[in-house]
């Protein structure tokens, strides 16, 4: 199966790979997995508590090229968004941007789940 140019670009030059301090109260961490393929994805956001804006987003994904590209793209989109705007990101936006084929749609679903899990974690930690 051929990957789109955008997937290849994110796969070869992933943006924002790395991790943030899990113990930092302004950092939310989402760890999700897809049992059908065995992928694991960790996505973290650092939120400015006074503005509610995501100032940093990092990810680390062990999985196929589409899973890496989906999470890389997600971190690009997250930066500069408010927490609520981030929650509005849909997996279909990722599918369209990366031209993912039907068999790889679950990779974009995983990225959406990771965003939601990271923001949930931040909200729990900050108490709202």
């Amino acid at each position: 199966m051929a990957y789109s140019d955008k997937v290849l670009d994110h796969y070869n030059n992933p943006r924002n790979v790395g991790s943030l301090d899990k113990a930092d109260p302004t950092v939310g961490t989402g760890m999700v997995g897809a049992p059908e393929c065995g992928d694991v994805m960790k996505l973290q956001v650092k939120v400015n508590p006074s503005t509610g804006i995501i100032e940093e987003a990092k990810f680390k994904t062990f999985g196929c090229g589409s899973a890496i590209a989906s999470s890389s793209l997600a971190t690009e989109w997250l930066r500069g968004k408010t927490v609520d705007e981030a929650l509005a990101i849909k997996n279909t936006d990722i599918v369209n941007e990366l031209s993912l084929p039907p068999v790889k749609i679950h990779c974009s679903v995983l990225a959406e789940d990771a965003i939601k899990a990271a923001i949930d974690d931040y909200k729990k930690k900050s108490g709202n």
């Binding site: 760890m31 997995g33 694991v40 062990f62």
Partner: peptide, 10 residues
């Protein structure tokens, strides 16, 4: 997948 398993796999 259970979170402990994901942590371990990661």
């Amino acid at each position: 997948a259970p979170p402990e398993l994901l942590e371990e796999v990661f």
